[in-house]
Simulated assay, not measured.
Amino acid sequence: MTESTIVPTGHHIVWDWNGTLLADNHAVVAAVNAVCTAFGAAHVDLSRWRSVFGRPLWRAYEKVLDREIAQRDWARIDRIYHEAYRELLHTCELAADAPEVLRGWWSAGRSQSLLSMFFHEELVPLVEDFGLSSVFSRIDGLRDPAVGGSKAGHLVAHLDSLGVAPSETVVVGDVADDASAAEWAGAGCVLVTTGVMSREALEATGHPVVDSLGEVVERLAGARAM
């Protein structure tokens, strides 16, 4: 499947956080390498992690650790990763154009919300610290780690809480799971190349792929004007 040239229309954007609005690739790679160290595997760079990243996530770790992942291994991987990631979270900044894009979309009278698979109790104060809470009509993170996995069900619940129709919604994210969730819910999707998944993998979803948040809103505004 090749990248779609059809840009979705919709008045409401559901933004992803990690890798989309938050520029955290360095923290992600460092956390993955903390796992590699713990399992005696060679370290990876961003290019390597992008080449293997996908869902289910344990398969990506099997490739970089060169071993099968048992349930006890996964619990250890999850703990090591998040401990290392949190140590570097304070060094992560917003994507360069995020404040301008978010405030511009909001001030133009359009609606937007935030849906992330990052932990809700950590996400909300982080967004507040960046001064962005006021531009989102709703912020949802992962409230129960036991029901993580795919974003699809979370997106449906998020839109239900907002009272926004999927047909009026565009999901913006940096991984194929964002596209799968949008398809499941019946929403549109635009993917950005700023995160942990390769352009080739993003284009294989069949959804539009762009290189910046500014380009996202430019294409959405253009599609609405047509």
Score class of each variant (00 low, 15 high):
Pro125Asp: 04
Leu114Gln: 03
Leu123Glu: 03
Ala185Ser: 13
His90Asn: 09
Leu115Thr: 04
Glu93Thr: 12
Glu121Gln: 12
Ala108Trp: 07
Glu83Met: 11
Ser180Glu: 05
Asp144Lys: 05
Tyr85Trp: 05
Ala70Tyr: 08
Val192Thr: 12
Arg67Ser: 01
Leu162Asp: 02
Cys92Asp: 04
Ser111Cys: 08
His120Pro: 01
Gly188Pro: 07
Ala108Tyr: 09
Trp184Gly: 04
Gly173Asp: 01
Val171Asp: 04
Ser150Lys: 13
Leu132Ile: 08
Arg72Leu: 12
Glu68Ala: 14
Ala146Ser: 14
Glu62Met: 14
Trp105His: 11
Arg59Glu: 03
Leu126Ser: 11
Trp184Pro: 02
His120Met: 07
Val156Ser: 13
Trp106Cys: 14
Ser137Met: 14
Trp74Ile: 12
Arg86Gly: 06
Asp66Ser: 13
Gly148Val: 02
Arg86Lys: 09
Phe119Thr: 06
Ser134Val: 11
Val135Ser: 02
Val172Lys: 10
Ser198Trp: 03
Gly148Ser: 11
Val147Asp: 04
Arg86Phe: 07
Val64Leu: 10
Met117Ile: 06
Gly188Gln: 13
Arg103His: 08
Phe130Thr: 12
Val127Trp: 02
His158Gly: 01
Glu122Met: 14
Ser198His: 05
Val135Met: 01
Ala98Pro: 08
Val64Glu: 01
Leu94Pro: 09
Ser134Ile: 06
Ser111Glu: 02
Val101Arg: 15
Val172Cys: 07
Gly188Glu: 06
Gln112Thr: 07
Cys92Ser: 15
Arg103Lys: 13
Thr91Gly: 06
Ala187Met: 08
His154Arg: 15
Ser161Ile: 00
Ser116Trp: 05
His120Ile: 05
Asp97Asn: 09
Phe118Tyr: 15
Gln71Val: 15
Gly186Phe: 10
Ser198Met: 08
Gly149Gln: 07
Ile69Pro: 01
His158Pro: 00
Met197Trp: 00
Ser113Ala: 06
Arg67His: 05
Gln71Phe: 12
Ser167Val: 10
Ala84Pro: 04
Ala179Phe: 12
Met117Pro: 00
Gly195Asp: 03
Ala182Asp: 05
Tyr81Arg: 03
Ser137Thr: 15
Leu155Lys: 10
Thr91Ser: 10
Glu183Val: 15
Arg86His: 11
Asp178Gln: 09
Ser134Thr: 14
His120Val: 04
Ser198Leu: 06
Glu83Val: 15
Leu123Trp: 09
Val190Lys: 03
Leu162Phe: 03
Arg86Val: 09
Ser161Pro: 00
Ala146Met: 06
Ala152Gln: 11
Val127Glu: 05
Leu162Ile: 07
Glu168Lys: 10
Ala152Arg: 14
His82Trp: 14
Leu89Glu: 10
Ala75His: 11
Ile139Gln: 02
Asp160Ile: 01
Leu102Ile: 10
Ile80Lys: 00
His120Trp: 09
Ser167Phe: 02
Ser180Tyr: 01
Val172Ser: 05
Arg67Ile: 07
Trp184Ala: 15
Glu100Tyr: 01
Gly104Cys: 12
